[in-house]
C-alpha cells in the first residue's frame, strides 16, 4: 500500500518524487462540476484534486451535499444533466477521461472503472434475474459465450459469500436480503477486475454486522485484484478500518487530506475535528455528544471565503474575507485553514 505516497494536489508534484515516484492509477485535478438549476448555477464540486494509487483505498468523507457523490459519479462520467463537468482533469492510468466520447467511456465503465451505490434495494433491476444482470455486464465488454459468462457469474457470487450460487443466479433481486443484494452488486462491479472501484456509501443502508462482513469482503477482493477504491462515506468509523488515506470534503472542496491515522488522531482542520467529535464512542458515555453547530450550507449560497466560517469555533475576520489556500503539512498532509489545529510550521512544499 502506498499510504504515505504524496497526495498533494500540486500537478507538478507528480513524477518528481525521486525513486519512489509511482504514477497514480487515478488522478483527479481541479475538478469542477456545476449544476444549472432554476435558482442559477451551483457548484457542487469546486476544484477537487486527489490521487489514488494501485491497491489503495481513499476515503472520501463529508456530510450530505458536500459534493462527494458527485465527485464519484464524475469519475465514471455519469454526471447527468443538469450537471456538467466544467473544468479539471480526470486521468485513469494516465489517460484523460474528461472530454472522451461517450462510446469510449462506455468501454471503460464496468471494465476499468466500476461503481457501487448506496441503496442495495434499488441498484438491481427488480424485473430482471440476477444471471441476466451479471451476464450482460460480462458480455458488454468481452465476447464470450452465454455459458462461459454464466460460469464466471457463478464464481463471482461464490467469491462474495453467496451460498449455492447456481440457484441464486435464477432468482430475482427481491428474493435477496439487502446485504445479499449489495454482495451481488459488488460481485458484478468486480467482474472485470477494474482498476478503480468507486463505492458510494455501499454499507450505509445495512445492519452493522452485515456492514462489517461486507467491508471485509470488499477489502479482500480489492486487494486480490489490485483494485484501488474511492470509498465515499459520511461514516468515519468505516473509514478508520478500511481506508489508507482520507480526504475530507466540505461544500464542494477538499479541506483536509492525509494518511487515515494521522487525520483521525491529529486533525488539522476544525471541520475534521468536529466530524471526529461527533462520532459516538464508549469513552464518552454520559457526556452529551459533540455537534458541529449549524448546517451544511446550501450549495446555492455558500458562505464567502472559507465556507466553514459560520460554523467554525476558530473563525476570525480573515476566514470571512480570504479563502484559505491548500497548505501542505508534514507527513504528506494538506489542509485549507487559516487557523489549523496543529501548531506546527507547514512543511516545505
Amino acid at each position: 500500500m502506498s499510504a504515505e505516497a504524496s497526495s498533494l494536489p500540486s500537478p507538478q508534484g507528480r513524477g518528481t518524487q525521486g525513486g519512489r515516484a509511482m504514477t497514480p492509477i487515478l488522478s483527479v485535478r481541479d475538478l469542477v462540476v456545476t449544476f444549472a438549476i432554476r435558482e442559477g448555477v451551483v457548484t457542487a464540486v469546486n476544484g477537487v484534486s486527489f490521487d489514488v494509487h494501485r491497491g489503495e483505498v481513499l476515503g472520501l468523507v463529508g456530510e450530505s451535499g458536500s459534493g462527494k457523490s458527485v465527485t464519484g459519479l464524475a469519475i465514471l462520467g455519469l454526471v447527468d444533466a443538469p450537471g456538467r463537468i466544467e473544468a479539471g482533469s480526470i486521468r485513469l492510468e494516465g489517460e484523460e477521461l474528461i472530454g472522451k466520447p461517450e462510446r469510449e467511456l462506455r468501454r471503460l465503465r464496468g471494465k476499468r472503472l466500476a461503481m457501487i451505490f448506496q441503496d442495495p434495494m434499488t441498484t438491481l433491476n427488480p424485473v430482471l434475474r440476477i444471471d441476466t444482470q451479471m451476464i450482460e455486464a460480462i458480455r458488454a465488454h468481452e465476447n464470450v459465450s452465454e455459458k462461459a459468462a454464466r460460469d464466471r457469474a457463478r464464481q463471482a457470487l461464490l467469491k462474495v459469500g453467496i451460498p449455492s450460487p447456481e440457484e441464486r443466479l435464477t432468482a430475482y433481486p427481491h428474493q435477496f436480503s439487502g446485504g445479499m443484494r449489495q454482495r451481488v452488486a459488488i460481485a458484478t462491479a468486480l467482474l472485470h477486475r477494474p482498476a478503480v472501484l468507486v463505492a458510494d456509501e455501499p454499507t450505509t443502508a445495512l445492519d452493522v454486522t452485515i456492514q462489517a462482513q461486507i467491508l471485509a469482503e470488499v477489502q479482500e477482493l480489492a486487494a486480490e485484484s489490485g483494485t484501488a477504491m474511492v470509498w465515499i462515506t459520511h461514516d468515519l468509523s468505516v473509514i478508520a478500518g478500511l481506508a489508507d488515506r482520507i480526504a475530507v470534503m466540505y461544500a464542494g472542496r477538499i479541506v483536509e487530506t492525509g494518511a487515515v491515522a494521522d487525520v483521525l488522531e491529529r486533525p488539522i482542520h476544525p471541520y475534521t475535528a468536529g466530524l471526529i467529535g461527533s462520532v459516538p464512542s464508549r469513552n464518552k458515555r454520559g457526556v452529551p455528544l459533540a455537534q458541529i453547530p449549524g448546517m451544511t450550507p446550501s450549495l446555492a449560497k455558500v458562505p464567502p471565503a472559507c465556507p466553514f466560517n459560520p460554523r467554525c469555533p476558530r473563525a476570525s475576520v480573515t476566514c470571512r474575507t480570504i479563502m484559505p489556500e491548500p497548505t501542505p503539512y508534514d507527513g504528506a498532509r494538506m489542509a485549507r485553514c487559516h487557523h489549523p489545529l496543529i501548531e506546527q510550521a507547514p512543511a516545505a512544499a
Binding site: 471503460l108 465503465r109 464496468g110 471494465k111 466500476a114 441498484t123 438491481l124 455486464a137 458488454a140 462491479a189
Partner: peptide, 19 residues
C-alpha cells in the same frame, strides 16, 4: 439507481432502453 448501475456496468444505451 438500477439504471445508473446498468450504465456503470458499461452497457450500451440500446440495451438499457430495450431491456
Amino acid at each position: 439507481d438500477y439504471i445508473r448501475f446498468a450504465r456503470a456496468k458499461g452497457l450500451s444505451s440500446r440495451r438499457i432502453v430495450l431491456v
